[in-house]
Structure formats: C-alpha cells, structure tokens
Design a protein around this nucleic acid. Sequence first.
DNA 1: TCTGGGGTCCTAGGACCC
DNA 2: TCTGGGGTCCTAGGACCC
Length: 472
Amino acid sequence: MDAFYAAAEQAAKPSLRGKPVVVGGIGPRGVVATASYEARVFGVRSAMPTAQARRLCPNAAYLNPRFTLYRQVSESVMELLRALSPLVEPLSLDEAFVDLEAGGVPAETAAVRAVGERLRRDILEVTGLTGSVGLAGAKMLAKIASEAAKPDGLVVIEPGTERELLGPMPVRTLPGVGPATAETLRRAGIHTVAETAEAGEAELVRLLGKAHGSGLYAMALGRDDRPVVAERDAKSVSVEDTFEVDLTDRTRVRTEVLRLADRCVARLRAAGRSGRTVVIKVRNYDFSTLTRSETLRGPTDDPAVVREAAVRLLETVDTTGGVRLLGVGVSGLADFTQEDLFAQIATEREAEEQAAVAVAGAGPDAEAAREPEPEPEPPRRWQPGLDVVHEEFGAGWVQGSGVGRVTVRFETPWSAPGRVRTFVVDDPALRPGEPLPLRGGPDQSSAPAIRPKSVSGADGAGSASGEEISRR
DNA sequence: TCTGGGGTCCTAGGACCC
DNA sequence: TCTGGGGTCCTAGGACCC
C-alpha cells in the first residue's frame, strides 16, 4: 500500500486530500510513521523526529495513528490476496508476499501482469486506496520491484534480467542491508550490487559474518529460493513506552514497569499464548539501551509472575540519571498455558524470596513492589485525528485542542470537505467515536444525513470507546 | 524541539552435559 | 600429571524491517 497510514487518513478526511499529512507520534519525542507524498516533497520521511518534520513542513496535518482503522483496511486487502492464492505471507499491515504459482497462475509474464493489474483495481475499489505490485520469480526481487513500482504502479522483473537490473543499484537496495552493513561494505570499496557479487562469498562472510555474508552474496546474484510461508506464529510479545520527560523517581519507574507488565500479559492472553522468558528494556537519558532477561521454569500467562520477574530484573539496573524508555516483553512462547504446578510454585517461591531480600535491603521503596496498585491509565483526551461524534453536528475528527477548547472538523469519508467548529473540552454533546469505514457510506448524491450505523459508538457496542464513554 | 513501537534474526560467550 | 570436542540453553547486544 502506498503511504498507507497517511493515505488512509486522507481517505477518511476529505479536507486532507491533496494536502501534506504526517502520521506518527505527535508528542515532543514522537517520530514519523508515514508521510503522505505531499509531505515528502518537503523532505519529511519515515522515522524522522516529528519535531524535525514540523520544521520542514509546518502546514502539514499531524495525526496520531489509528490502528483500528488500518487493521480494518489491511484485513480487506489481505482478503483480496487470499483470493489469489492460499499462500499469503503478511509482512506488516500494508505489505505481503503472495505465491501465485500456488494459486494456479501460469508462470507467464502476461498472465501475472494481468493478475497484478486486476488486484490493483480491486484494492482501489474495495479500500479507496492505491497499492503497488512487484512481480518476480523470488521474494527479494518482488519486493524490490514493488518498491520501484511505488506509488500506484506495477513492475515485473523478467526472469534472466535480474543481474543486469540489480547490478548498478546501490547495495542499500537489497533487503537486509541497512546503515551499518552499507558502511562496512563502503569501507571495503563495495557500493553497488555488482561490486557485492564481485567481492565473492568468502570476502562477504569475512566482513559481515556467516549468515549475513552468504545471504547477501546469494541476493547479489539474484538468487533467493526462500518459500512464501503463510501463518507464522509470533515468537515474542512486548510493549514499551517512551516518556515525554525522563523518569528519575525509582518508585515511579517501578510502577511504570508494573503497568507495562500488565499490558504485555493482556496482549499475551488475548493471543492465547504464554511465555517462558521475561525481558525488560531500559533506555537511559543518553539513549544508551540495555535489556535484562530471565527464563522461568515453565511458560506463564500469569500477570503476577510476569510483574515479579520484571521488577526483579529492574532491581539489577542502575536508573539514576534518568530513564527515557521502559519496556516489558515475553518470549519463548508456548501455544497454551502449561498447567505445571511445580514450576509455578517454584517460580513464585523464588520470587518471594527475592522480594524479601529486596525489602530487607532496599528500604521503603521495595514495599511498592509487593503491593502494586492497579493502573488507572490516564486517557489522553481529544488527540488530533481522533474520531468524535457530536449530538447535533454528527461525525467528525479532532483537528486540535488546547486552552480548554477542542476544534472539530465535521466530515466523513464519503462527505465533501467539512467545516470546523470549536467546543469547550468538556462539552457533553461531544464524545469519542469509532473510525468510519472508508467505503460503504451513502454516496454523495443521496441525502447528506449520517447513517445511524456510522455512530455505533453511541450504543456502546464499540469496545474501544467503552472506556471513553463511561468517563463522562 | 533528536532519535517510536513492535517485531525478527544473528552472534558470541559461558554454563552445562555427555 | 596443562588445558578434548560437540551440542544445547541462556543471556545480552546489535542490525534490520515496517
């Protein structure tokens, strides 16, 4: 999908079409997830600090990501892909490999091109968004082709032309070659794919290590026989938070770790998994980052067990000086929770002993570790981009807020660009809403009234908004 | 007003085992 | 009566991807 998050926002918000849109973290430490093509003209790029993007393009719309919407759109695109072949390997919400051979498509240029063009039309029709297609005899080549096709295009790499095509390209073109690898290769005088192939496998292994070196050599020759693999089980689950201001208070650091542990376990359980290794991540004020991990005797999905392990690991880390980021993860995932009482009891006893030691040695702070308070996640009200519904004016989205006011633009994916109104932040007529489908609304020719279904948040059916509604 | 969040894979050293 | 060899597991860090 082309500039996926930004394109989805433009489809949802008619007033943003044709304008620079930046989706990402909008706080002081945010980074850009996706910039619309209009914003890229100003030099805004993915992974750039949002503060820098604002300097480059002050007039863009800056929006928080709305993953609920992106997941919905993604699912409808993946459905189109699964209609082409049973072998579909999603790489992210907006990208996937499809094995057309397994779908019975003849391995002929004309046939695959027709399938690709048809797919692009279907994606546009179903989602209202454009996608690009790369077609080739291997995953790596298909990926390079799709990059070359962007935006809104299709590229076929004919078998036999791979080396000729790749040769002059910079090594960074090859998937798996990032800044560090490119720098290592540059120092060895290797800049292009052709030079990579000429260097030979032994030299690349010497420079980059066994796996990376031989893998890169194969790719430089256009060789890639990795199969398309559907259904890959997740191997780890993790959550992390960067704080707007570095944390210095030990107690606060601990309560944040406990919340993260709870969030991590909630995701783990939602996936019906359990895990054996708990890991914490700490990023310091100076951006130095470390991890600490502990492997339990058996897999768990018990929040208390994960909390205790996380706090135990935290005790081994020096956080004086300030903590910028904290994370908690679980790996070594098992498909179900093992009912191994011995392992569970042993782990818990271990934890208690450790906690007792911590209490004895650490003074009053340690008390907090034993009686962790349930977290009241403070909801951030009226974030830019948030869907809202007003009793009188209908569906819209938050354009901005501050000094007790919130500015809302009232428009829907299928309306004309809407107008802006400002309310006091606690206006009872205004409440959070659900993302509206990009397609399937009333067409422009019919009555402008908003369908009842489009304000589903009102009946409490929308789970994501339940918490927000109850706060009123 | 520098640098997100969620992942995967690889490497390397030490412990441990046969 | 100087120090084998191979395999697996665990931990920590790093590169890379979207």
